[in-house]
Amino acid sequence: MIKAALLQLGGEAYLFNSSRTTGQNSTPGPISVELFLVGCVLGFKALREGPNMKLQKTGWRLAVGGMALLVAGLLAVGLANARPAQPTPGDLWLHVRVDNPDDRGEMVRVNFPVALAEKLVSSIDHDKLRHGHINIGDNDFNGVDLRAILDAVSQSKDGEFVTVKHGDQEVRVAKQGGMLIVHVTDNNRMSRHHDGEMSKQEVEIHVPMAVVDALVSSGGHDLDVAAALHALAAHGTDTELVSIKDGRETVRVWLDSKNTSD
């Protein structure tokens, strides 16, 4: 009945199209004062026109009016906050999952929307990260021109670019199916979690070439991180980005459309 009355008085417009938004679309915002007033008007209207004519005494009217105000206000607060935002189809989430069953059972889970990461990176103006761009300068990476290397990789055809074998260690860098793939294996690595015990470490990194292209798109000595994240968000498919296995410890970084890492 109350909802119907609210609808009659245009309360629906107040409920679901609150103007006090933080730049978002027409999501239900916090209760507005206007909505509260609608509740008040309803309460008094119901009292005045209601069938119970015994409520004519001033004291009663005051008490019930106050209660109606309170109820209307609480109802409005509840309704205004009742509809949480829904996930937008196609939005990609970046997930980080670290598991170490040894020692104290460490566990880390990070779930972050890529689009939000892009906007946050664009709003940071600190040190070398300026509005989504990282200045790598001339002398970083021990004189290696990282930008030139990434540029060359993005323009080359599919294939294995680098293979290094040194003892038990092996590093491979390849481009395949639109992905830059880095694979590192260390078959005899001293594990930091097993006092002296040797264990195998495997690192696998997959980066979509569109992301690499976007990273070097700004030219000069800048890496465009915001553009890279934008390209990642536009990638649109579930992708395993990083996988590290070190003894029993595992690290995974991946993209999918779910907002949980389970």
Partner: peptide, 25 residues
């Protein structure tokens, strides 16, 4: 401040989610 503004405005649009969870012992 600009980061906080962007973050809060954008988080409002998201569904309820656990963003970070750390368990150590």
């Amino acid at each position: 401040m600009p980061i906080l503004r962007t973050m809060s405005a954008e988080l409002t649009k998201l569904p309820d989610s656990v963003l970070v969870e750390v368990r150590d012992g």
